[in-house]
Nucleic acid binder design. Structure first.
Length: 489
DNA sequence: AAAAAAC
């Protein structure tokens, strides 16, 4: 088997041999042209090979594995209502709950004209609806590791028939200490299966994981990891620590940012900043791990609907979240982990649009800045930002905090010409990024209601024996039966 | 140092 992938030159989804039901769903999503990772990964996944994929979020990664998985499982799709006809055949693991929900929404959309069922399980919410769905049977299960193991223990999830495993954001899962959970899950799966591992970076740990659990994987790399998109303008503003809140307000006002994600390093800091922004007239809400799952979902939902100007987030939102491209992100703190910087600013300037990554930098963050510059292999422009409306942290609702809104004078922060800051005489300067083009796709939380109607119809079961498709069942089931090392060392 | 994730 060759290790090179020919990137197809034609630019439509027709070239992959996907079924009409899948193509229809793709068209309904408004997608016409495969992204680079889709063009590379779809044929490889369809061919049944293991994949080691490096791709940033926003590159179309989810579709690159979901579409071929659905295609491969189609011969096994059943309209029977019997749960036994709907064992879990594809398992997709993600590090965060929000990401799981989002992947599930995508899978649901792509599979909606097929008889395949999908479900998502993650923690922080009632187990019972999840259990009920699992008992009905689903072919494609999206999950965070902890809750999945919970379901396994409760015997509501059986992973004995999984043929395809996806580890999404694998590096993140390792960072978060999921390795023991992953190993436990992997030990529950048939050894003979297809495994797809996606990771932003190929660290030594990731390579070890791949060496242990993948079989002759095809490496697919689209954007060089640790690279930052060329269409993202990165600016670092030096500002006194105590002026950071005022700086955020000022940046939002001066740049006329309709929507922005503001990243903080701590959960408490995020909550506090959200409150202070609200006090200063910015519609803001916080999203972090100490908020309840329903609060997290509501916050994200409201932000996606455009009801919130500033989503103040910890790194729970740094990776994976598929929010339509934002005009800007702000780093309230520089992240301790330089890689998180790359992920955070990946929330802007996506899909070809331009974006600004604005980072606040105070004297005690020199180390973080150095690490970031080392990682992205270039120095960052540092400008001084004079904050003229410092936000009081106590009970000062009047006075200086309010002055910023009325006067909006912007000494200090000046950029190169063409930037978003300058004011033309007596009116609004035009921003470089056309704000009119910016809209948010409505967020759809995982629809749990599958096409139950069609599941009812046909009780006379057609057990798939010889699928007429290009993917023979034998290939789907694996084929080689190579013994797999279980982890040692 | 901090974040995330099962109860």
């Amino acid at each position: 088997m060759s290790d090179t992938v020919a990137t197809p030159s034609t630019a439509t989804f027709d070239q992959f041999g996907l079924s009409a039901d899948i193509l229809k769903a793709i068209a309904e999503q408004g997608y016409t042209t495969p992204t680079p990772i889709q063009a590379q990964a779809i044929p490889v996944v369809l061919a049944g090979r293991d994949v080691m994929g490096a791709a940033q979020t926003g590159t179309g990664k989810t579709a690159s594995f979901s579409l071929p998985i659905i295609q491969r499982l189609l011969p096994l799709a059943s309209t029977s209502a019997s749960p036994a006809r709907h064992p879990v055949r594809a398992l997709i693991l993600t590090p965060t709950r929000e990401l799981a929900d989002q992947v599930a929404a995508n899978v649901q959309a792509y599979a909606k004209h097929t008889a395949l069922r999908s479900a998502v399980v993650f923690g922080g919410v009632d187990m019972n609806p999840q259990s009920a769905e699992l008992r009905r049977g689903v072919e494609i299960l999206i999950a965070t590791p902890g809750r999945l193991l919970d379901h396994v223990q409760q015997k509501t999830a059986n992973l004995g028939q999984v043929q395809i495993l996806v580890l999404d954001e694998a590096d993140r899962m390792l960072d978060m200490g999921f390795l023991p959970d992953l190993q436990r899950i992997l030990n529950l799966l048939p050894k003979d299966r297809q495994t797809l591992l996606f990771s932003a970076t190929f660290s030594g740990e990731i390579k070890k994981l791949a060496a242990t659990y993948l079989r002759n994987p095809q490496t697919i790399e689209v954007a060089r990891s640790n690279s930052t998109a060329a269409n993202v303008t990165q600016i670092v503003y030096e500002v006194a620590e105590g002026d950071k809140t005022g700086a955020v307000v000022q940046l939002i006002r001066e740049r006329n940012l309709k929507q922005v994600i503001v990243f903080c390093n701590s959960k408490i800091g995020a909550s506090r900043l959200a409150r202070q922004l609200e006090r200063d007239g910015v519609v803001a809400t916080a999203i972090h791990g100490d908020r309840s799952q329903s609060e997290r979902m509501q916050a994200l939902d409201a932000f996606k609907r455009g009801e919130i100007e500033a989503l103040v987030a910890t790194d729970v939102a740094a990776r994976g979240l598929d929010i339509a491209e934002l005009p800007a992100v702000i780093n309230f703190d520089l992240p301790f982990n330089a890689e998180d910087y790359v992920h955070r600013i990946g929330r802007t300037g996506r899909a070809g649009a331009s974006g600004d990554a604005l980072s606040l930098f105070s004297a005690n963050e020199r180390k973080q800045l150095q690490d970031i510059e080392k990682l992205i292999k270039r120095p960052l422009d540092v400008e001084r930002l004079v904050v003229d409306s410092p936000v009081r942290h106590h009970h000062d609702e009047r006075g200086s905090a309010r002055r910023g809104r009325d006067e909006r004078d912007e000494r200090g922060s000046r950029r190169r010409s063409g930037g978003g800051f300058e004011r033309s005489s007596g009116g609004h300067a035009h921003r470089q990024a056309p704000i009119d083009d910016f809209f948010l796709k409505p967020y759809e939380p995982s629809p749990s209601a599958l096409s139950a109607a069609s599941a009812r119809r046909d009780e006379t079961e057609n057990v798939p024996q010889k699928p007429a498709s290009k993917q023979p069942l034998a290939a789907l089931l694996g084929g080689f039966g190579m013994p797999r090392k279980t982890t040692s060392s």
